[in-house]
Amino acid sequence: MAEPLLELNGLSKSFGALKACDGVDLTLLPGEIHALIGPNGAGKSTLIAQVAGWLRPDAGAISLLGQPAVHLSVAARARRGLGRTFQISSLASEFSALGNVRLALQARERGAFGFWSPVRKDRRLREEALAVLARVGLEERAEVPVTTLSHGERRLLEVALALALRPKLLLLDEPMAGLGPEGTRALTAFLRTLKAEAGILLVEHDMDAVFALADRISVLVYGRIIASGPPEEIRRSAAVREAYLGDAA
C-alpha cells in the first residue's frame, strides 16, 4: 500500500464536556478523493481545524506525508504540501484575483522574503499566476478586485490559491457551497481531474457530488467515524442511513 498523504490516529478534541472529536482514525491515500460527511454538529469543522493546524488535538497523532505534524504551525503544514479551501471564502479582499494568486506563488518560493523588488513587475510570477487562474477559468478576471468577484468566482479563486501551492494533498471544506447546479457540475468535473495531482479530503454537503467523486467515504457523527468505505458500502449501511442519509432524504 502506498504511504498515506494524511493519517489521523485516535484524534480527540473536547470542548468542556463536548467531545467534538472522539478518537478519529482516517487516512488519505495518493490519488484518491476521500469524502468526509456528517450531519451538522458532527465535528467536521473541529476535525478540519486540527488537520490544518488551527486547533491542537487533546490526544492522537496527525501525520502529513509520513511525517508527524501535530506540532507544526498552519504555515508549516501549508509548506509541507497541504492546500486548503474554506467553507466561507477567505481571501485577501483588497487585492485582485491575480494579487491573491501571486501571494500564494511567492509563499511557495521564498515566503515574505524580498524587501526591495516590486512584486508586480515580476513577469514570471505574473505569468505563472495567470496560468493558475486559467486552470479554474478565471484568467479573464485576473485584474478584478476580489470584492467585485461573484460568489462563485471567489469559490474558484479559493481552489486556485490552493493549487498555486502545488499541494500534495487538498483539504476542501464544502467547495460546492452556494455554487448552484451548473457550478457544482463544473467543479465536480474539475476535482475529478485533480485527484491524480493531489489527494483530496473533501468535506461536502452535496451528496450527489460526494457520491460522484469519492473513492472512499467516512461518516462522522458526534465526533466519531461510524462508517468508512467505498460509496456503495456507505449507501447500503443501515447505521449511516439512520444517522445521516435518513434525515437528509
Binding site: 490544518a52 504551525s73 498552519v74 504555515a75 508549516a76 501549508a78 509548506r79 486548503r84 474554506f86 477567505s90 481571501l91 485577501a92 479582499s93 483588497e94 487585492f95 494579487g99 491573491n100 501571486r102 501571494l103 500564494a104 511567492q106 509563499a107 511557495r108 521564498r110 515566503g111 515574505a112 522574503f113 524580498g114 524587501f115 526591495w116 523588488s117 516590486p118 512584486v119 490559491l161 501551492l165
Partner: peptide, 23 residues
C-alpha cells in the same frame, strides 16, 4: 515588494496568509 504583499495580506486576512504557508 513581496514582503509588502505579505504584510498587507496579514492586515486583510491573517488566516489566508498562514494558509498560503507564510507565518
Amino acid at each position: 515588494s513581496r514582503f509588502g504583499a505579505a504584510l498587507q495580506c496579514a492586515r486583510m486576512n491573517e488566516v489566508r496568509l498562514a494558509t498560503l504557508g507564510i507565518a
